Amino acid sequence: MAAIRIETDRLVLRDWTDDDLRPFAALNADPEVMQHFPAPMSRTESDALAGRIHDRIAAEGWGLWAVEVASSGRFVGFTGLSVPSFTTHFTPAVEIGWRLAREAWGYGYATEAARAALGYGFGVLDLEEIVSFTAVTNDRSQAVMRRIGMCHSASDDFDHPRIEPGHRLSRHVLYRLPVDRWRAS
């Protein structure tokens, strides 16, 4: 499949390269970046994740794209679409997600990249709905979800099936964005 390249005013969403592995490992090892995940990742775990993401993009033509700052070419993380690999009340679904290096926080990059990914999901893939979820403690990601037009209903909240019950991160919020709401915004 042809590589997808999505450009925004300040960012490029693209396929992964070997040059992304070192900065990706650094952000995955950062305890602050990973505070809403069960643990930071080792270099081996990070490289394996990047490999799975790259393979998914190669197979499907879309996925969690590498994000770079257009003016510098600097890799700052990922944003894109994925299919949750677990079963719960809202699956099957397509999820939008992001993870950015701490030095890229506070510039609106997550929101800008997420809006571009939504455009691809609704405009190219013809999805009917896109969801996003995170631990209830992750206020920063929930703020991005609201900025991109997603809605939360407490009745959709769930215990993540891959996190031990009672763990501080087990309870998750679910946000939804139906295509009609996206079109109207």
Rank of each mutant, 00 (worst) to 15 (best):
L11E: 11
L13R: 06
D15H: 11
D15A: 14
D15F: 02
D15R: 12
W16K: 11
W16L: 10
T17S: 14
D18S: 11
D18T: 13
D18G: 09
D20A: 05
L21K: 11
L21G: 02
R22L: 13
R22I: 12
A25G: 14
A25E: 11
A26E: 15
L27E: 04
D30S: 05
P31A: 13
P31M: 09
E32T: 13
E32I: 11
M34D: 10
H36I: 00
H36A: 02
H36C: 04
F37E: 12
A39M: 10
P40M: 10
M41L: 15
S42C: 08
S42V: 09
R43Q: 12
R43L: 12
T44P: 00
T44F: 05
T44H: 09
E45A: 14
E45Y: 06
S46F: 06
D47W: 14
A48E: 14
A48H: 13
G51V: 09
I53D: 01
H54V: 07
R56V: 05
A59R: 13
A59D: 12
E60Q: 15
E60L: 15
E60M: 13
G61M: 05
G61H: 07
G61R: 06
L64T: 00
A66D: 02
A66L: 04
E68Y: 01
E68W: 00
S71F: 00
G73Q: 08
F75E: 01
F75Q: 02
F75G: 02
V76N: 01
V76Q: 05
G77Y: 04
G77W: 03
F78A: 03
F78N: 10
T79D: 09
T79S: 12
G80W: 03
S82M: 12
V83R: 15
V83A: 09
P84V: 04
P84N: 13
P84G: 05
S85T: 12
F86Y: 15
T87P: 00
T87E: 15
T88V: 10
T88M: 11
T88P: 00
H89W: 08
F90W: 07
T91Y: 10
T91R: 09
A93Q: 03
V94A: 04
V94R: 07
V94G: 03
V94Q: 07
V94C: 06
G97N: 02
G97T: 03
W98Y: 14
R99E: 06
L100M: 13
L100N: 04
A101G: 13
R102K: 15
R102G: 07
A104D: 03
G106N: 11
G106Q: 11
G106F: 09
Y107D: 08
Y107F: 14
G108M: 08
G108C: 07
Y109V: 02
A110W: 01
T111D: 08
T111W: 02
T111P: 12
T111H: 02
E112P: 07
E112V: 06
A113D: 04
R115I: 05
A117I: 04
L118F: 02
G119R: 08
Y120N: 01
Y120W: 04
Y120I: 01
Y120L: 10
G121T: 03
F122T: 02
V124A: 15
V124Y: 07
V124I: 14
V124P: 00
V124T: 15
L125P: 07
L127V: 06
L127T: 04
L127A: 06
E128D: 14
E129T: 14
V131R: 08
S132D: 00
F133P: 02
F133N: 01
T134A: 12
T134R: 00
V136I: 12
